[in-house]
Design a protein around this nucleic acid. Structure first.
Lengths: 194, 194
DNA sequence: AAGTCACCCTAACGTTTGTTAGGCAAAATA
DNA sequence: TATTTTGCCTAACAAACGTTAGGGTGACTT
C-alpha cells in the first residue's frame, strides 16, 4: 500500500468504502478519514468523486475484456475456451474483491455520458462469452437454445462469487472456477426423475 | 394505483425510485415529487425513509419464505420441489420488479438493528433451498457435492432475472422458470469433450 | 351543525454533501 | 543554496439532505 502512488491509494480506499457503504453513502470525508487526511486534500490527486468511480469501473471492465479477447484469439475448442474464460473471470474478480464489487454493484451511479461507454464495454464482454457458446454449437459440443439467456445465467453465477467469497476460506479461486464450470456444463446431474 | 392506500402508493413509488437511483440517491423530495406532493407531506403516512426501505425488503422476504415453506411442506420428490420452488421464485420476483430490485440490491442500507433480522430471513430462505438439495441426495435424484455452493449458484441465476426481464418481452415468467430449471438441472448439456 | 378524519401545505431546523480558494511546510530538483 | 513540486492544511461555499412544527381545507360521521 505504501509503495503505491497517492492516487492509487485513493482508488483502493475508495473501492473498499464504496463496497461497504455504497457509492452515494460513502462520502469524500469518509475516504479522506480512512487515509488520515482531510477531504479537501483528495482534490490534489483526483478531479471529482465521479472520477474515482469511473476509474475503478472502467479498469475492471478493461481487464475482463482483455481476458475474454485473449481466450477467443487462441485456437481452442469451445469447452476449453469456456473453462478458461470462467477461470480468468473468477481470478480477476477474486483478485480484487473491492473493485469487483464496485464494478458489479455501483456502476449504475456512473454519470450519464460515461455510463453509455461503460454499458458498451459490458456488452462487448457478454458478446465474448456468447461467441464461445456459438462456437460450441458449431463444434457440436454444447447445446444452448437461447444463447443470450445462457450467457446471462452463466455470468450471474460467476459474479455472485463476490457475495460469499472469502480469501481466507477453504475454497480457492481455481477450485471455485472448477466447481462452477462443472455446474454450468452439467448442472445438478439429474440421475432420474421419478 | 388509485384504489391503493396512500401508504401503499408511497411504497410503490419509492420502490420504483430506489430501483432507478438507488436508496441513498433517491431523496424524499424525489418520492414526493413523483406523487405530486411536498416531501413533508410524506410523513403523515410513514415514519421515516428507513421505514420505507424496511417495509419493502421485509415484505418481499416474507413472501419468498412463505412460498418455500409451502413447497417443503408438500409431499413431493426433490425434483418436483426444486421445479416448483424455482417457478414460485420467478413468479414472485417478476410479479413486482421494483420491489424485487430493492430487495436484492438495496437491502444493505437497512439500518443495523433491522439488518440482522433481514439477514436471518434471507438465510432461512436459502436453507429452504438447501433442504431440497439434501432431499434430492437422499432420494438419489441429485448429485451436489457442495450444497451451500449449489444453492448460492442457483439463487444467483434466479435473481439475475431482474437485470434483464422485460414484462413486455417474449419470455414470460413460467417460461423463464422452465428454462432456468432445465439449465440448473442439466447445465449446458455437454455432448462430448474433444 | 359540530366534530372528526385524512391529506397536504409552507417554513424552517440542523446536518451533511461535494468542492474551491489560498496558504504553508517539507522534499526534490536545479 | 535557490526553486520548483508535492502534499496537506484551514476555512468556507452553496446546495441538498431528512425531518419537525403548526396550520389549513375539504370530506365524511354523528
Amino acid at each position: 500500500m505504501e509503495n503505491l502512488s497517492r492516487k492509487e491509494q485513493i482508488l483502493r480506499v475508495s473501492a473498499k468504502l464504496f463496497k461497504e457503504k455504497g457509492f452515494e453513502a460513502a462520502s469524500m470525508r469518509d475516504i479522506a478519514g480512512a487515509m488520515g487526511i482531510e477531504a479537501a486534500s483528495l482534490y490534489s490527486h483526483i478531479k471529482s468523486k465521479d472520477e474515482i468511480l469511473e476509474t475503478i469501473c472502467f479498469k475492471m471492465a478493461d481487464e475482463l475484456i482483455k481476458a475474454i479477447d485473449e481466450v477467443n484469439d487462441i485456437y481452442f475448442n469451445a469447452a476449453e475456451k469456456l473453462t478458461l474464460a470462467i477461470k480468468n473471470h473468477v481470478r480477476i474478480i477474486t483478485g480484487d474483491l473491492d473493485a469487483s464489487s464496485v464494478f458489479l454493484r455501483e456502476w449504475r451511479h456512473i454519470a450519464k455520458l460515461k455510463l453509455k461507454d461503460f454499458i458498451k464495454l459490458r456488452n462487448r464482454y457478454e458478446e465474448g462469452f456468447t461467441q464461445i457458446l456459438v462456437n460450441g454449437e458449431n463444434e457440436n459440443v454444447f447445446e444452448a437454445t437461447d444463447k443470450k439467456f445462457a450467457v446471462l445465467t452463466i455470468l450471474s453465477a460467476v459474479n455472485w462469487i463476490i457475495e460469499w467469497y472469502d480469501p481466507k476460506g477453504k475454497m480457492q479461486p481455481d477450485e471455485i472456477a472448477e466447481h462452477l464450470t462443472e455446474f454450468i456444463m452439467s448442472g445438478l446431474k439429474v440421475k432420474s426423475i421419478a
